[in-house]
């Protein structure tokens, strides 16, 4: 009996030790490109929003990032697939290999004060963006200066660049309601649960004031200064795929293909100049 117990325990300990050993080691992603080439496609993790990745009337996935990814895939001779993910699980999805790129208006910068470069390798930045404050149209007269936002309730996407901006404006973390997507934050605002939302300017330009968000408007208070930022694509750390995607981006920019796609979505003035230089 005792011997058996000892054997069982040692088995458990061996399993435990191997588990902890493998989890400590830096994972090696330098063979990513070979693997992607072999299987013939790469997977982009997305959430659905205009103008980056969204469904048109026919139910087809379109958008700037969608077409951009397809163009990159074309150049590399593989296929681009898109997987709708929970934005909060994006690093988990990336590191477990269920997606290969985070490509969905992904801001090059920090998240909760931690630089995102800790989690991913970025490709070239390709599009300029800002965070922007959205309010209900009827509040436009009262919420007209930075001071008016102090102590107000805000809705943001958890883990987004807008979260820290909203925290700065409201002055208190407790005032933030965090959601799965930027669209959910807007919904919260139009339903009257919060006083303002902070989302990407590119998204706000495409969605605020139309359709389901007709009652919303972009806040134009001149004393709210928000640092400009850029979008880039996130790849696994140490992956050799990053260089491949960069090569494709440079070529597409040189040939004017990227500019064409940008024009289609009204983003031609927001492309990063001298991309890749």
């Amino acid at each position: 009996m005792k011997k058996l117990l000892a054997v069982l325990l040692s088995i458990v300990m061996i399993i435990g030790a191997t588990l902890s050993f493998t989890s400590c080691g830096e994972t090696d992603n330098s063979g990513d490109w070979a693997e992607i080439k072999e299987r013939g496609y790469f997977v982009c993790g997305i959430t659905v929003y205009a103008p980056m990745n969204y469904f048109n009337e026919d139910g087809d996935l379109v958008g700037f990032d969608t077409e951009f990814a397809e163009a990159v895939a074309d150049y590399l001779g593989v296929e681009a697939k898109f997987q709708v993910i929970k934005w909060g699980s994006k690093y988990l999805e990336l590191n477990s290999g269920s997606i290969d790129l985070i490509w969905n208006g992904f801001t090059y910068g920090a998240e909760d004060g931690v630089p995102r470069t800790n989690y991913v390798d970025f490709t070239h930045a390709y599009l300029k963006n800002e965070q922007c404050v959205v309010i209900r149209s009827e509040d436009a007269a009262t919420l007209n200066a930075k001071a008016a936002f102090a102590g107000r309730e805000a809705a943001v996407e958890g883990g987004s660049a807008g979260e820290s901006v909203a925290k700065g404006l409201a002055g208190n973390e407790d005032k933030l309601a965090k959601f799965d997507s930027q669209a959910a934050a807007l919904t919260e605002l139009s339903a009257g649960q919060v006083d303002f939302a902070v989302i990407d300017l590119q998204m706000a330009k495409a969605m605020v004031g139309t359709g389901d968000y007709a009652g919303l408007t972009i806040c134009t208070a001149s004393d709210i200064v928000i640092e400009p930022e850029v979008y880039a694509i996130g790849a696994r750390k140490g992956s050799d795929f990053t260089a491949k995607v960069n090569e494709a981006i440079e070529a597409l920019y040189e040939d004017g293909v990227l500019q064409e796609i940008a024009k289609k979505y009204g983003l031609e003035y927001d492309l990063v100049e001298d991309l890749g230089k």
């Binding site: 588990l19 988990l92 999805e93 590191n95 477990s96 290999g97 269920s98």
Partner: peptide, 21 residues
């Protein structure tokens, strides 16, 4: 979470790849 993410994260094997993964 464990079934879907852990094999890829720890052992670099993608058991559940493809459309129906």
């Amino acid at each position: 979470f464990v079934v879907f993410y852990v094999p890829g994260m720890l052992f670099h094997v993608r058991i559940f790849s493809g459309e129906d993964g």
